[in-house]
Nucleic acid binder design. Structure first.
Lengths: 154, 154
DNA sequence: GTCCGATCGTTTGCATACCTATGATCCTCT
DNA sequence: AGAGGATCATAGGTATGCAAACGATCGGAC
């Protein structure tokens, strides 16, 4: 009869449940690693955060967007996108102008500085994606992306 | 010559870069969905957050742990685990006692209430994992977990 | 025994992220 | 036209998450 050194008083209560093997835990770990890689890699291009970069790219891609629509397109809560846009505006990368069609809405446009910042930032982002996927081979990368797409879009 | 309605001024600057297809974006989406499922599913078992649940399970599993070690085992920053433990203590699920071996350290132990809370919480957590993986079949689930493990542990 | 680097816990500051509530505005139905 | 529900942006509150700095303590080298 062997005794497990790590087995504590609650061992029986947990059954065969292992937090480290749950999707949530593994997703969080993967996120953490990606966030660290992103911060390192984007430091060379103005130090945009991942969400700020996502929002800026989307604004540039569309030319102009409502803040609310931008939030939906980038999967951010209205309360979240508000802060992200505010910080992008504080950096001078984005400008807010009134929407002639809807006085509630604010139309977001990239400033010249924002347009200048996008190109090198996208270059960094490509490298960041590559670095994040480094542990996987080509087939595994395709598989992971497909599975994540399936998992995230119910 | 067709014109794309969504093509804005910055279309050429971005090349073929699509934020929505990057690992980081897909990871965030998957995380969001899991977090929503977790909050819904754990509401029936005291409303613990995902990180609080993870920490509590680990404490129960080990019987007693140093706060710092707990952080490493649950992939949480010292600054992060501090707040998580503080909230668990405020809920009366965890107790802090001085470490006789190291006067800097605080040993964490589950209270009776904490032990009582773990069993139903783990039951919820199993259902949450199942619900999160719902969009995938058995093979895809195995594949995803393997890929995430590989991705998160460099 | 003492100094010195390392570790433990905490605090502060910043950035997500979401909930709820609120005021302003829009839009539809009557 | 006017009422009523829906939508937009914002504000406040809570919870992660990490970097940096801090005091207290530990440990080993001398």
């Amino acid at each position: 009869m062997t005794r497990r050194a790590t087995a504590g008083p609650g061992h029986a209560v947990l059954g065969d449940y292992l937090v480290e093997e749950q999707v949530g835990f593994l997703l969080r770990r993967a996120q953490q690693r990606h966030a660290a890689i992103f911060q390192d890699g984007m430091h060379a291009a103005g130090g945009l955060t991942a969400t700020q970069f996502t929002a800026l790219v989307k604004i540039v891609e569309l030319g102009q967007v409502t803040q609310n629509l931008l939030g939906r397109l980038t999967a951010m809560d209205p309360a979240t996108i508000q802060g992200v846009v505010r910080r992008l505006a504080a950096r001078g990368l984005v400008r807010r102008q009134p929407d002639p069609m809807d006085r509630r809405a604010a139309v977001l446009v990239a400033t010249p500085a924002g347009l200048d910042a996008v190109r090198p930032a996208v270059a960094c982002a490509r490298a960041i994606t590559t670095a994040t996927l480094q542990p996987l081979d080509a087939g595994e990368r395709r598989a992971l992306l497909a599975l994540l797409r399936k998992l995230g879009n119910p």
